[in-house]
Structure formats: structure tokens, C-alpha cells
Nucleic acid binder design. Sequence first.
DNA 1: TTTTTTCTACTGGTCTGACCACTCTAAAAA
DNA 2: TTTTTAGAGTGGTCAGACCAGTAGAAAAAA
Lengths: 196, 196
Amino acid sequence: MNALINNKPRTKAYQNVLEKIKDYIQIDQLKPGDRLPSEREMAEDLKLSRSTVREGLRAIELLGLIETRRGEGTFLRPYQSYQTLSLLAGFIFQDAKTKENVDETLVMIENLIVDLGRCRGLSKIQHKWSGHGYSYWCRRGYKATFEVILDVMDNQLLEKIWYLLYAFYLSIEDKQHIRTVKDLFKLFDVEIKAEQ
Amino acid sequence: MNALINNKPRTKAYQNVLEKIKDYIQIDQLKPGDRLPSEREMAEDLKLSRSTVREGLRAIELLGLIETRRGEGTFLRPYQSYQTLSLLAGFIFQDAKTKENVDETLVMIENLIVDLGRCRGLSKIQHKWSGHGYSYWCRRGYKATFEVILDVMDNQLLEKIWYLLYAFYLSIEDKQHIRTVKDLFKLFDVEIKAEQ
DNA sequence: TTTTTTCTACTGGTCTGACCACTCTAAAAA
DNA sequence: TTTTTAGAGTGGTCAGACCAGTAGAAAAAA
């Protein structure tokens, strides 16, 4: 009962893989798109079996930090895929699946973003939406339209939170967003007119 | 190049484990603390090797959905540990590590929670804080004090978001929260008086 | 000389089977 | 009745095999 004695759970070997990868990134100054050492090389470095190394790699692959390609190698992910965020959101919010909560929270977060976007670049947003016109943005969809605000708002954390929440919302709702492109245009006083 | 032809990445076997676990939870109505089928049983069910099953399990263990205990089994996690949230937050917000963003975002989210808490249970919060007094809550710390609002606010999603963000905040800041227990008491007009 | 084909060495993906360390419970022994 | 032992289960880690893919060098063909 070593864990109980030390009041600290014993580290599983695969968790060392996560630490080691952090080291690789830091020491080798790895950037998204760069290749990590192969599974066999890591196994040798860490003095672990290849299957234990794979366990660690699978864990962070699921988190979206890396991607593995057969025959090529293991790479730092250049971006977090939508699928990854959706999966993460599903697990993070797993016992909070009430539609009322989701609707309420998404609207609240979006209102924060809208307010911040207004403060920091109202005219920029208006310009971008007016430039192509209402019909264009309708075709592009709510997400793409909202992303204009995200770009201007200049707060990556709020942006991430919105993506997480939005992915979760779509994964449990079979319908479109409660808000529409039209609502966004109204919020920013951008003209809604038919395509010429 | 099946993936390119179908424009869809091939599913890796370990990902089937994740789907199967979702099935187990849903079909067996599993609750936190319940035991999942053993690795060997899952391997048999899915017609996969035990090591492939383990890869899937490691992935979601890291996410905090399950925990495995040698000699006992694999269990649905009763709660998301702080360490898990911190790790997840670190990955989710990984390229958004600017201190300005963190401060700003945390305060904005907290303001939402505060407002909602006020709406839904101002007197309840005031009562809970007054009951033990300011010194007690100072000793308990900011987090515990804030959790009183979270309990009353009745929005699990916002609660989860706050935990994620707070964990992330603490993982990059070496200091205490920009806000204090005193600030919270002031926000809710609760008396700040010395211990009797 | 250039282009095409082949071969080799690397990569990840999945598997089999072994053995160890732990827990729990039933059965046997005290 | 209580304690100890044994067995059957669990997860943790490993070695090694083999397959499926990719990349690039070398050889062969044009």
C-alpha cells in the first residue's frame, strides 16, 4: 500500500511518456508539424517497452496534441481538430448534459464575446460582414460568421471556450444553433439585404 | 490511400474501445464508481487484443473518465480530479498562454457566475457565508468560498468551465487569484468582521 | 542522361503470450 | 470463531512477431 503510505498514487509508466514528450518539445524547440522521435526510439530512451510507450502516445493523441501516421511517424499536431474538441467536450461536460444548461451557457459566453468584439472592433466586424453581404454569410453559416467576431475580439482563451462549448452543443443537439446569422447582423447593426 | 479516396481518416482499432465504453455506460446505466468490464472481457467482446484495448483505456483514463486499479478493475471516475482538469486545460488552452487573456477571461466568467448566483440565490449565499463568518472562509480559501456560488448557480456547464479555467490559471500563475475572499464578500454585501 | 522500377529501411498498427503485482473471497487450518 | 492460505480474478509491463504503410536510395530501363 505504498500509495496509501505516501498518500500519492504510484505513477504509471505510460505517464512518463507524457513527461518525456514535453521534454522533447521544450529541448528540441519542436513546433506544430514537427516529427517526434519514433516509438522505438522513445522506448529506448525511456527504457520502456514499445507497447507502454504506445499507451502514452494514444492518450495524448486522443487529446489532440499529436497525430501518428503509419509509415511516417508521430507529429505534433498543427491544430486541434474539430473532432478532438468535440470528443474532449463530451468527456469534460459529460455529466452536465441538460439542454437548458447548454443553451443558457452558450448564449452567455456568446454575449461576452459579442460585447468584447463590439468594444474592440465594431467597425471592423461591420465592414467584414457588409463587404460580402448577408446572403454570402448565410451560405457560409453561423460558425463562420461568428468567427469574424472571434478574430477581432483578441482573446484566445474565450475563443477556445466557445469552440469547446459549440462543439459540445452540436454533438447533443440535432438542430441548428438557437441563434442565426440574422441575429448576429442585428446585434451589430449590419444591413440585412438580399443579394444583388 | 483509402483515407484520401474517402476523404476520411481510417479508424484506429483503439478508437472502437471508446465507442464501446460509451455503449457500456449507456446500456448498463453505469454510474460514477461503477466497474466496467475487465480488459480481457472487453478484448473478447470487441475481438481485439488486450493491448489494443489498453490503448483505448489509457486514452480516456488520461481524460479522467475512468480510473484503473491493479487487482481491482476499471471504474467510472466519481469525479474529475483536479489533476485531470489541469492537464486537460493545459492541452486545450495550450497555444493561448497569455497571462492577460487568462486574467481577463477568468474574471469575465466569474462575473457571469456571480451574476447568475445573485439572481438565483443571493440570500442563500449570504446566509452560508455569514453562518461561519469571514475568517472561516478566509481559511477555507478562495476556491471553497467561490464554490458556494457555484452550488447555488445551478449551471453545471458554467461550473465545469470555471474549474477548467481556474485549474489552467493556477497552473501558469505562481500567485494567488487576483480576486480574494474579501472581494467576494463585498460583491454579495456580506459582512466582513473579525472572528469572535 | 533521364525516368521508372525495385528494394531497403524506416515508420506505425495490431497481436500473442508471458509474467508480475495487486485485490478479493472462499476454503482450510488453527 | 478467528486467522491464514490458496486460488481466481484484476491491472501493469514486457518481448517479440508480423503486417501495412511511406520515403528515399539504388538499380534498371528507356
